[in-house]
C-alpha cells in the first residue's frame, strides 16, 4: 500500500496504443456478430413453423443467421484488418 502509482513515471511502449485499440475493435466485431446471430435466429425463428419462409431451401432464420452470418463476418474480419489494423513491429529491439 505504501508504493506510489507507477503508471505515469515511465513512458509506456507506444505500440500499445494501437494494440489496445485493435483489441477493442475485435471485441466490437464480436458484439456485432452476436447481434446479427441473435437478431436473425430469434427474430425470424421464434414464429410458428407454418409461417416460416425459406431461402435456398433452408428456413430463413437459419439462412440469415448462420449461412449469411458466416459470409458477412468472414468479410467483415477482412475489412477490419485491412482498414483498421496497422502493421507494427513486434520485436523488442524494433522499439526505437
Amino acid at each position: 500500500m505504501t508504493q506510489k502509482r507507477t503508471g505515469k513515471e515511465f513512458k509506456e511502449d507506444k505500440r500499445y496504443t494501437q494494440a489496445n485499440k485493435e483489441a477493442l475493435i475485435a471485441i466490437g466485431l464480436f458484439i456485432l456478430n452476436f447481434i446479427w446471430w441473435y437478431g436473425f435466429a430469434y427474430g425470424l425463428g421464434a414464429r410458428p413453423v407454418e409461417e416460416y419462409t425459406y431461402v435456398m431451401g433452408l428456413p430463413a432464420w437459419f439462412f440469415y443467421s448462420c449461412v449469411a452470418g458466416f459470409v458477412v463476418f468472414s468479410f467483415a474480419s477482412w475489412f477490419m484488418v485491412k482498414f483498421l489494423f496497422k502493421d507494427i513491429p513486434l520485436d523488442d529491439n524494433a522499439e526505437q
Binding site: 475493435i25 471485441i27 474480419s77
Partner: peptide
C-alpha cells in the same frame, strides 16, 4: 464459434506477441 479466431487473435493481439 465463428468469431473465435478473430476474437482470440484480436484480444490477446499484438500486445501479447510484443
Amino acid at each position: 464459434q465463428l468469431p473465435t479466431a478473430f476474437l482470440t487473435l484480436g484480444v490477446l493481439g499484438k500486445k501479447f506477441a510484443i
